[in-house]
Simulated scan of single mutants.
Amino acid sequence: MANSLHEQLLKAGLVDEKKLKQARHASPKKKKKGKGAATTEPAQPSAAEEARRREAERSRELNRQQKEAAERKALEAQIRQLIDAHRQDREGGEIPYNFQHGKTIRHLHVTPEQRDRLGNGRMAIVTLEDGYEVVTREGADKIAARDATRVVVCNDPEPRDKAKDEDDPYAGYEIPDDLMW
C-alpha cells in the first residue's frame, strides 16, 4: 500500500513512463474562447434558488415582525410599571377635574390638593388600558420618553411673561387684602 497509484499502474503495465510524466505535469487549463465564439448570457436562477430566496426573504420579514411585537410588549410592560410606581391615590376625591382627550371632554374625581398640582404641572394624567391615572410629574416625563401619546394632561408651569408685566399699567399698585378672595 506504500506505493502510489502511479507506481502501481506502472508495475501492472497499464501505463508507461512517458504517459506518467505527462499526467504529473499536466494541469487543468481553461480553454480560451476564440474571437468568433458567442458569449453566453448569465444563467437565470433556477426555480429552486428563486424559491429559497423568497422563503429567506419571508423568514426575515416574519422575524422582524416578531421582534417589533416583542419590543412593543416590553415597552407596554415598562409603561405599566412606571404608572404603578408613580400613581397617586385618588381615594376620597370629590372634585371633578375636567380635561380634554382627543375630541371628548373627560373628568376624574380628585382631591383639592391634586387639582392644584394638576393645574400647576406637578402632576399629570396618563392613560392606562381603558382608564386614566394621576401620576407625578417625574413619572409622566419618563412615560412620555417611552410613549408621548400616553400622557393626556401635563400642564407646564409657565413663568409669567415679563413683557406683559412691563406693559401692565397697574403693575406698580398693590392689591389690598380685603379685595382678595
Rank of each mutant, 00 (worst) to 15 (best):
D141M: 05
L118V: 02
K142W: 07
G36D: 13
H25M: 05
V110K: 02
G139I: 03
K18T: 06
L75E: 13
H86G: 12
A85I: 01
A47N: 05
Y170N: 11
A12I: 09
I105W: 12
K19R: 07
L10K: 07
T127E: 00
A171D: 06
A70Q: 14
A56K: 10
S59H: 09
R90A: 12
E166A: 10
L10G: 10
R122Q: 08
E166L: 09
N63L: 13
K19W: 10
S4Y: 11
V110S: 04
H107S: 06
N155G: 06
T111K: 03
K31F: 10
Q114L: 09
E158W: 00
D147Y: 02
D116M: 02
A2C: 00
A37C: 11
L10Q: 08
K32I: 12
R87W: 01
E55G: 08
V151D: 09
M180F: 13
A26S: 08
Y173P: 00
D177G: 09
N155E: 12
L62C: 06
T39P: 14
R60C: 03
N3I: 04
L10T: 03
T136Y: 01
D116I: 02
G121L: 02
R115A: 08
G36P: 07
L118H: 02
V151C: 09
F99N: 01
L82K: 03
K142V: 07
D84V: 00
E49L: 11
R115H: 09
E133Y: 08
V134R: 02
